[in-house]
């Protein structure tokens, strides 16, 4: 298998305390159907658990699903936990219920893309393929 044909590995994690993972599972399945290997960690993950999973699984992208409204707290914590493990260059995408005024703030923190409810999964697939295969135009400034 050549380096370019290897499957993309993505971690899909749900930080925080909300107990709804339907959206996360839909995205996970869409990514799998696009030929990616999706590591799904389940509910109520702490930022440390997410960063540790990203490290052990050596993923290309980390996807966070947050519906609790705590994204402005949780996302910086996840980014910090990733940086602490030398994973600051792993692109992070965020999906869930994110008020429009928070989107630029998350991008400024270094998040690669933010998706609201109803975001087409093919867009998420295309964005991930672009950033991993190296033709991406990130919206956020690099961390």
């Amino acid at each position: 298998m050549t380096a370019t044909s290897r499957p993309i590995r993505v971690l899909i994690a749900k930080p925080g305390l909300d107990g709804h993972d339907r959206g996360a599972k839909i995205v996970a399945r869409a990514l799998r159907d696009a030929g990616m290997e999706v590591i799904y960690t389940g509910l109520r993950q702490t930022p440390e658990m997410i960063a540790e999973a990203a490290l052990q699984e050596d993923v290309d992208v980390v996807g966070l699903s947050i519906l609790s409204g705590a994204h402005m707290t949780l996302v910086p914590q996840v980014l910090e936990a990733l940086r602490a493990r030398g994973l600051g260059d792993v692109p992070v995408i965020v999906g869930g219920i994110i008020p429009p005024q928070d989107v630029p703030k998350l991008l400024a923190l270094g998040v690669y893309k933010v998706y609201g409810p109803g975001a087409p999964t093919r867009q998420i697939v295309a964005d991930i393929e672009a950033v991993v295969r190296g033709s991406a135009q990130p919206e956020g400034s690099p961390a």
Partner: peptide, 19 residues
């Protein structure tokens, strides 16, 4: 068909083991 996979065994790790 797609070569993709859903790898869900980490779900069983307790927070203590996961860290």
């Amino acid at each position: 068909y797609t070569g993709g996979a859903l790898l869900g065994d980490r779900v069983r790790l307790t927070p203590r083991l996961a860290q």
